[in-house]
Each structure stands twice: as structure tokens, then as C-alpha cells.
Design a protein around this nucleic acid. Structure first.
Length: 550
DNA sequence: GTAGGGTTAG
């Protein structure tokens, strides 16, 4: 028993060690002891072995609140929310009543499952059982309400407590940030400091992550300065939040400097930098950094690989993508859904749809994103009927299509000129699947109708939309007018766009092309003069083949 | 009880 204690106190247990430990504990009849049973349940949960965790829980006769919490947390973390709730109800009927940690764990599960009703019920329970000022349950409530966008409800909980601890401050600061109120977060940060509370890494990450709009760069730099002065910058979470911040604002040299200043940047920080380069359009730099990371022997995970595959999909050469596919095998990530979906997309965008389909077929488990990737690839390659077969397959498997599924399908209809199929899908998307129609769906519908020569029908669709109509939708119609040489409608459409966006030269160029097609050179000149007189310049389009020589 | 990087569509 004494010999076992060091084993028990290990914070990390591999699956095999847990099994051995379980066998040893069983031999000494200690597995019936709720203390050891709780430890084992936690270890099993850590190793995603929820079945063993449950078996052990059921066999333990004396169940303490810790054991109940361990099994409930195991289910909540495995996203098995219904099971977690059933256990909670079962627990409430026993003599062992739920405590603040039970509530906190279930409250977290609620926001992870976007379950506002469940959250309100638990909030009621917290109040009834006298936990309305408890740090543990209140910080969980503040985070949950904020993550669901209800920052006012979060504030009520926050200000309703008698006393505030650091976690509560952090939860509220981060809550304001994730709801878009970075200024309120900063106000709280200053108030907290004026009350003598010292911020920690959580506080700073909450503040930094709320800075989304690029005009907030000076605020971000100010917070970065605070991190440097207080030495918090060396915290790896803060470091990666800063790398992401500068990447969001496309200040890649600052992002790179933050990473270089860290003693041992971890995988997440590298991942933030590589993704930053990719999202700033510097795909080559993203790919080269990933390669150098590989050369150093650092083990990439599914998130980094998926992200770097997005960069590989944007270039005209499939070689980097193939190289990354090699590292997918080396790291044993070939069964990962996120990685496979990114691989399908990369292959189809690089022109190797067949390889993408092979990846799709080899997937042991598929989700809606994998289907979206393959449907999109098929549509992009003009194979609409195969895209529809995939769509039927998706439905027959009981998967729920999302807005991207319909974008991919409508795009396939556009490429193949399938007007009736497109209309039907568009209606089903709204009526049967209750998916909110977005601008991109309207753009695709307008393109589908317009390219098929049904310009009036497309125009009627745009007129039926609530005002103001996005310029992208009008622009799609204008380009169809250009293709069909319809200057009469083109002029009407262009006027709508000029009213919305008088400064955008690209649409004037489009209209001037329609005039040029009809030989109306005076009108062409007038439009071109309008552009240059207004000090505008259309950025010329470029195209190239294998420009990177990777 | 609070924190960092993320695959598809556009």
C-alpha cells in the first residue's frame, strides 16, 4: 500500500500503466476504496477509456462526492453530455449531494454544447443550494454566459458575488473580450490593479484575445509592453496569444520577434506563427517554417498539420502538400478527421482530385467537414453528379449538412449549369434544414442563374433581398451581365453598386468592359476617367504557374 | 472554476 502511493500521485498515467495500477489495487482490495477508485477513474478518463472508468465507478460501493465528480467530469469532457446529466440526476437522488465542482463541471459542458437552457437550470441549482457567491461555480457561470454571448448575464453573476478572486476577475475580463467589448475588459483590468490585485497569464491572454479589429494594434502593443515589464511574456500561453495578435494584424515581423524572444517556444506558439504567415498570404514562409520545424525533429500535431495544409492548398505546386502527407504518416495522423479533410482539400485544389478521393475513401470515420471537402473538390472539377452522390451519401449516413455543404453544392451546380437542382437545394436548405442563408449563398444563386442566361430571374432574386444588399451579390450579377453583354441591366446593377461603394474601381472596369463589347468607346472613356479622376486604381489581376519553385 | 494554435464553404 505504501509502495503504491507514489504511483497513485503521478499526475500522468499512460493506458498501460493505468491497467497495471488497477490490477495491483484490485489485488490488495483497495479498488473498493473510494479514494483509489477516484484516482483510477481520473486516469481512465485521461486516457479516453470511459468504459473502464464507468465499470470501476459502478463497482465501487461507497461513492464520495469526489468519485461522482470524477465520473461526471469524464463524461462531460468526452462530450457525452446526456450521460453526464443522467449521472448528475442519479447523484442528486442519493445522500451525496452535488458540490460546487459538480456544478462547475456541468456548467462548462453546457457552453461547450451551446445549451443555454441547461445552463439556466444549473444556475438555478447553484442559487438554490447557496452557491451564489461561491468562487468555483460563479467563475464557471461567468465564463459560460460569456461564451454564449450573454455578457450582461455574466456581469450580473460577477457583480452579484460578495468577494472577487483572481479567477473571477480573469473570467470576466476574458468574457468581455470574447463578446467584443475589449474596452470593458481593459477597464476591469485597470480597476483590478487599482485594488491591488496582480494579473497573471490568464488575465493577459483574456485581454489580448479580445483585440480583433486591426485598428487596435496600438492597444495590443501597449499590453505587450505591460507583459514585458511584468515578465509575463515568458508564459507560453501569453507568448502564443501575442503571436496570434500580431498575426491577426498582419505584423509578421513583430509576431516572429515575439516567438524568437521565448526561451523554448512550444508547438502552439510555432503553430500560431506558421498559421499567421499562411493567413497573411505568405504561404511559402509558412511551408518553409514547417519544414524547418520538422528538420529539428519537433513532432507536429493534427492542428498544425491541418493548418499548414491550408497553405499548401493555396500554391500551384503539389510537392509541399505531398511532403506534408509524408509527415502525416510519420506522425501517425492518417486517421485524424481534421487532417484528412485538409488533405482532401489540398489535393483537389492542387489539381489531384483523384488523390483527394483516395484519402476520403480511406478515412475510417467521416464527418460533415470531410464530406464538404470532397463535395467542394468534385464541384471545383466540374463533377456535379458525383458531388450529388456524395451529398446523398452524407444524408443517408445521418450526418447533418451545414452552410458550407450548401456552398459547395451550389458551387458544383454553378460549374455544371444545373439551375433546377440549384433552386431545389436552395429551398431545401432554408425549409428542410433550417440553415440561415448567407451572402455567399446568394452570390452563388445569382451566379448560377446569371451564367445560365437567366439574368432577369437573378435580378428579381436580388431585388427580393432585404436592403442594403451586399455589393458582392450585385457584383456577381454585374459579371453575369458582362458575360452575356447585357448593358441595359448592367447599368442598373452598376448604379446600385456605385451608390453603395463609390470608391471601388473594379466594378467600373466591369461596366466599361460591357460598354467596350458594344463598341461604346465614349462611355468606356468616361468610366475610365472617373476612376483616375477619383484617384483610384484597379489592382491588375495576375496569374502564374509554379511561381514559387519550392 | 479562468487562458494560447485549427480542417471545409465564401
Amino acid at each position: 500500500m505504501i509502495k503504491l502511493l507514489p504511483e497513485i500521485s503521478q499526475s500522468y498515467q499512460t493506458p498501460s500503466r493505468t491497467k497495471i495500477l488497477h490490477a495491483l489495487i484490485t489485488k490488495t482490495h483497495l479498488s473498493r476504496d473510494p479514494f483509489y477508485a477516484t484516482k483510477l477513474v481520473r486516469f481512465y478518463a485521461m486516457n479516453d477509456d470511459i468504459v473502464s472508468a464507468r465499470n470501476l465507478f459502478e463497482k465501487t460501493p461507497q461513492r464520495t462526492v469526489f468519485l461522482w465528480n470524477a465520473i461526471i467530469r469524464a463524461y462531460a469532457q468526452a462530450q457525452k453530455f446526456d450521460d453526464a446529466i443522467s449521472l448528475f440526476i442519479r447523484m442528486a437522488k442519493t445522500n451525496t449531494k452535488p458540490d460546487n465542482f459538480t456544478y462547475a463541471c456541468l456548467i462548462r459542458a453546457c457552453y461547450e454544447n451551446s445549451d443555454l437552457d441547461g445552463l439556466r437550470v444549473l444556475h438555478g441549482g447553484v442559487t438554490v443550494y447557496g452557491l451564489g457567491s461561491d468562487f468555483i461555480s460563479c467563475s464557471a457561470l461567468v465564463t459560460a454566459y460569456s461564451k454564449l454571448g450573454l455578457v450582461d448575464e455574466a456581469s450580473k453573476v460577477f457583480y452579484g458575488t460578495f468577494e472577487l478572486d483572481l479567477v473571477l476577475w480573469n473570467s470576466m475580463i476574458s468574457g468581455h473580450g470574447c463578446c467584443g467589448f475589449w474596452d470593458k475588459g481593459l477597464e476591469l483590468f485597470n480597476k483590478m490593479r487599482s485594488l491591488g490585485k496582480q494579473p497573471d497569464g490568464f488575465t493577459l491572454v483574456g485581454l489580448i484575445s479580445g483585440l480583433i479589429c486591426p485598428s487596435l494594434l496600438p492597444i495590443g502593443q501597449g499590453i505587450h509592453g505591460f507583459c514585458l515589464k511584468s515578465g509575463i511574456e515568458s508564459n507560453s500561453h501569453v507568448g502564443s496569444a501575442l503571436v496570434s495578435l500580431y498575426s491577426r494584424f498582419k505584423c509578421m515581423s513583430s509576431a516572429h520577434n515575439v516567438l524568437s524572444s521565448l526561451c523554448q517556444p512550444d508547438l502552439v506558439t510555432w503553430s500560431a506563427l506558421i498559421t499567421g504567415y499562411s493567413q497573411s498570404g505568405d504561404y511559402l514562409q509558412a511551408l518553409l517554417l514547417f519544414r524547418s520545424l520538422n528538420m529539428e525533429g519537433k513532432k507536429a500535431d493534427h492542428i498544425l498539420i491541418s493548418s499548414v495544409l491550408t497553405a499548401a492548398a493555396q500554391i500551384t505546386n503539389v510537392r509541399p502538400g505531398i511532403e506534408i502527407h509524408g509527415s502525416v504518416f510519420r506522425h501517425g495522423l492518417q486517421s485524424n478527421i481534421m487532417v484528412s479533410s485538409a488533405l482532401i482539400d489540398m489535393y483537389s485544389k492542387c489539381g489531384f482530385l483523384g488523390l483527394g478521393i483516395r484519402v476520403f475513401e480511406a478515412m475510417p470515420e467521416k464527418n460533415v467537414v470531410s464530406y464538404n471537402s470532397v463535395i467542394s473538390g468534385l464541384g471545383l472539377h466540374g463533377l456535379a453528379s458525383q458531388a450529388f452522390k456524395m451529398w446523398e451519401d452524407l444524408i443517408s449516413k445521418g450526418l447533418k449538412p451545414d452552410e458550407s455543404t450548401f456552398s459547395a453544392l451550389l458551387c458544383a451546380c454553378c460549374h455544371a449549369g444545373l439551375v433546377n437542382d440549384g433552386w431545389e437545394l436552395f429551398k431545401r436548405m432554408k425549409d428542410e434544414f433550417c440553415i440561415q442563408v448567407r451572402n455567399e449563398h446568394y452570390v452563388l444563386m445569382v451566379k448560377l442563374l446569371g451564367m445560365a442566361g437567366k439574368l432577369e430571374e437573378a435580378y428579381d432574386l436580388v431585388l427580393s433581398l432585404p436592403k442594403p444588399v451586399d455589393s458582392g451579390i450585385w457584383g456577381a450579377l454585374l459579371s453575369c451581365c458582362d458575360v452575356h453583354g447585357n448593358s441595359e441591366l448592367g447599368e442598373i446593377v452598376a448604379q446600385h453598386i456605385f451608390d453603395n461603394e463609390p470608391k471601388k474601381g473594379a466594378y467600373r472596369v466591369m461596366l466599361s468592359n460591357i460598354y467596350a463589347g458594344e463598341g461604346r468607346w465614349n462611355d468606356v472613356k468616361q468610366l475610365r476617367d472617373d476612376i483616375t479622376d477619383g484617384g483610384q486604381r484597379k489592382v491588375p489581376g495576375v496569374s502564374w504557374i509554379d511561381g514559387y519553385g519550392y
